[in-house]
Design a protein around this nucleic acid. Structure first.
Lengths: 350, 350
DNA sequence: AGCAGTTGCAAAATCGATTCACTAGCCGGA
DNA sequence: TCCGGCTAGTGAATCGATTTTGCAACTGCT
């Protein structure tokens, strides 16, 4: 503010520059003088001083497992659109699925005085902060947290309806890693929808991404199709009595397809594969993936919007859950079931 | 600090908590009293007040084109390791190759009082900020900027030596997008190494990622193999008189491979393909990619280290360039050249 | 003229730390 | 005794804004 000492008091300058309502008594001519001087001297208010007084940082913390391409990028691109429009910036912290970091980073960011918190794919259960929180793809009914979730029931319904209408009855299901909040939720939806559709769920056809000594904590990389390759390989060793598989996400689907090919099966000829998310490469892999698209961009935007509203109005009540609709994208990896083709081959081996 | 008014003066408390050297005259017993009270009351110094006084924010700005999986993730994971160890956080800003944003974001972040700047894959040319800057994969000799670069001469040498030792002589080269600083640098290296190795560069076999009305500004997505598919397709329409192609990056290589397959050629049977970067999926695509690995993690770590040093010591002189060594990773996408095989087929068409 | 209400601005408090300048008390040596 | 130096702190300035309070001058109304 020193620069302005040439003319008026700090008060006046502050009122004018912030276009404060109580500055209505200041005549246009004085305003112009101030604005012109600020422009000329390239005046920028000190961020710390302002934040100290107003007690807000105009920034939020984003807590995510990692910076993976598929999920993170897409969601963040929606988030950033909203934040930028509101003149907000964000700190990113990746917890790498480590419990210790999941608890430490929120504390550190609160000390950094972030105005709010955005959780991506991370359970809000163990996060206790005195600021607004919005969790995307988490399902914890925690007080003061708004969850932005996908309608998994609808998602599963779309996938299953598609597969069954192609004649598939023996369908394998791939469950997600325990650490990802959606995993359990998706599985519950699968069970319920199967019941509703009178579809028989065979426990022998259920595989897990993080089974058998393989978990997020040991060398998990979200972009590694390995997460789908291994469980599919394991399944194929036990049985080939299925004509379709519903994968936990697109990366896993790509890995599963490779495992199927390596086992001498064709996709979608012998086995149809459905992915989840619709990441960019889903359209580009061979065969291109039929997949349940999550409106990730929209989820990011909505999440950021709600967070900003919560920040602006800390008293108001906000919904604890906002549900978004998925959309089935049909591409090359699904096709009609060859009736009992696999079954026959399987029997032929005996 | 109010809480501490129970006992001592602000000064004392501050000295003790910061373990300041001038606190040597404070007896251990008093120290303990202060520390114990701070612990008990869960005291956290106000970030703004402290930053205002000390005039540093303990955070840096990261300017990148986008949040793509391949490059960004890998580099940032190195960066974050160093920043976290030094108790720094970072703001991310993605300029999406828009000149306007490339100039705007640095200004905004300087107003946010970041202590330094990290540029990823972004030219430092148009960035004028009064704080330390480290640019990773930029080659602009700008004052006060340290560039962390790859040894492109060595990189090209490794790739070319590999291909030539497999018998390849007719090699196509894919140039990168103009907007990416490495593109021009890589191309210069290719020209020079070719000269040194007596390798004939045929202009008819040089293709560009952003040729023909396709640039970063129109729908570019770093994860879209399309960036390699289109130029390869265009090349194949003109000639098939080549046995290998050296792609600008792995994503483009994956796209190029798909274009080759769609044209009825096999990889590496008919054409060998070399990528660049060694992103995660390079090892998982079919065929797995032979590629020049950039030590991205190390580049990120080194970049962050230098930036932190520059911040800690604003006067000292720092090198304007730090060069890192690449490493050729040989996988399935390259193989021996079939002597004149493609040539023959090409002639056969006439 | 007298009083209320508005206009146009300034002084000073405030936000919560860090840091500079000082001092009271005590001890030891000249 | 007197001075210097050490111990164990304290008081006040400072960082740079925002915000509260105050107040003189003017305007308008009766």
């Amino acid at each position: 503010m020193l620069a302005e000492h040439l003319e008026l008091s700090q008060t006046t300058v502050s009122l004018v520059l912030n276009n404060s309502p109580s500055a209505k008594s200041i005549p246009q001519e004085t305003r112009n003088r101030v604005l012109e001087a600020a422009e000329r001297l390239n005046y920028r208010p000190n961020y710390f001083a302002r934040s100290l007084r107003q007690n807000r940082s105009m920034s939020v913390g984003v807590l995510a497992p990692d910076l993976s391409e598929g999920y993170f990028t897409r969601v963040m691109s929606g988030v950033v659109q909203e934040l930028t429009a509101a003149h907000y910036f964000y700190f990113t912290a990746c917890h790498d699925w480590k419990r210790e970091l999941i608890e430490k980073y929120p504390r550190m960011l609160v000390e950094r005085a972030v105005d709010g918190f955005l959780l991506l794919n991370t359970s809000a259960d163990h996060i206790a902060v005195p600021i607004p929180v919005v969790a995307i793809s988490s399902h914890s009914p925690v007080a003061n947290v708004t969850n932005i979730v996908l309608d998994h029931h609808l998602a599963v319904e779309q996938a299953l309806t598609h597969l069954r209408s192609l004649g598939h009855r023996r369908i394998a299901f791939m469950r997600g890693p325990r650490a990802i909040p959606d995993s359990e939720f998706r599985w519950k939806a699968i069970q319920q929808v199967a019941r509703e559709m009178n579809h028989k769920l065979d426990p022998a056809l259920v595989i897990r991404i993080d089974s058998a000594g393989w978990s997020m904590k040991t060398g998990y990389h979200p972009m590694a199709p390995e997460i789908g390759y291994r469980p599919m390989q394991a399944l194929l060793e036990k049985t080939r009595d299925f004509t379709a598989v519903f994968c936990f996400n697109d990366i896993a689907a790509i890995g599963a397809i490779r495992a199927l090919k390596d086992a001498g099966l064709t996709v979608p000829g012998d086995v149809s594969v459905v992915g989840f998310d619709d990441i960019q490469s889903a359209a580009y892999s061979t065969p291109s993936l039929t997949t349940v698209r999550q409106p990730l961009l929209k989820m990011g935007k909505r999440g950021a919007q709600v967070l900003l509203e919560r920040i602006a109005n800390r008293e108001k009540e906000f919904p604890s859950e906002i549900v978004m609709a998925p959309e089935l994208v049909i591409r090359e990896s699904t096709g009609p079931a060859l009736p009992d083709a696999n079954n026959a081959r399987d029997l032929g081996k005996h």
